[in-house]
Amino acid sequence: MIELDSVSHSYGGSELLGGLALRLPPGSFHFLTGPSGAGKTTFLRLCYAELAPTAGRVRIFGKDVRAMSRDDVAHTRRRIGVVHQDCQFLDHLSVAENVALPLSVAGRNAADHAGDLADLLGWVGLDTRAEALPPELSGGERQRAALARAVIMGPELILADEPTGNVDWEMSLRILHLLIELNRMGKAIVIATHDLNLIRAAKANVSARVLRIKDRRVQLAGADL
């Protein structure tokens, strides 16, 4: 699904990540961990073609990122759901419209998917907040709205960058369980987090692999943390 082949990324000449060789197969569940500033976000951005590698090759759904046109990138992103730590919305549109935004930009009629939208909002527990504006949401509500927006297109892969960074432990678990449910539905999940408790909590429910960024390399961490 996503293949990295001796990938490096440098900012202004200094290498942040180097020699990455990795495959994210369909239906897999990965945690990506490491100290802040180690390159977790950069790794994820390489995975959804927000960044092109400075060396090596990234293939997303079999396509080399460097060979993608801007429209190819747009189409690729419709198959990848992304959740950021500080997720951004269109503040003048309601939560429901924001969650349906990927449908609108893909040219689909949101009205045809009204049922899906209602189900999805119910699933993330935002059915009563559908008409609220994003600035009125709490941190946990924002994360769940972002998750709903990330999955409405039925993506094959979900990338979450510190999705529990701004919420309390209870809400973290709730978001984690939503992601685990998605994984059970066959979607590949990558969660970048520095929260080891979250990883332990997940391990009880799903066979997750842990990738650790250390010394600019991504390594598969041992089974025990």
């Binding site: 801007r70 429209d71 189409h75 992103r77 951004q88 919305f89 935004l101 930009v105 040219g107």
Partner: peptide, 12 residues
Amino acid sequence: EVLRLVGARDVF
């Protein structure tokens, strides 16, 4: 930025 993230094409 948000529109690009959710897969909007430039023309949209």
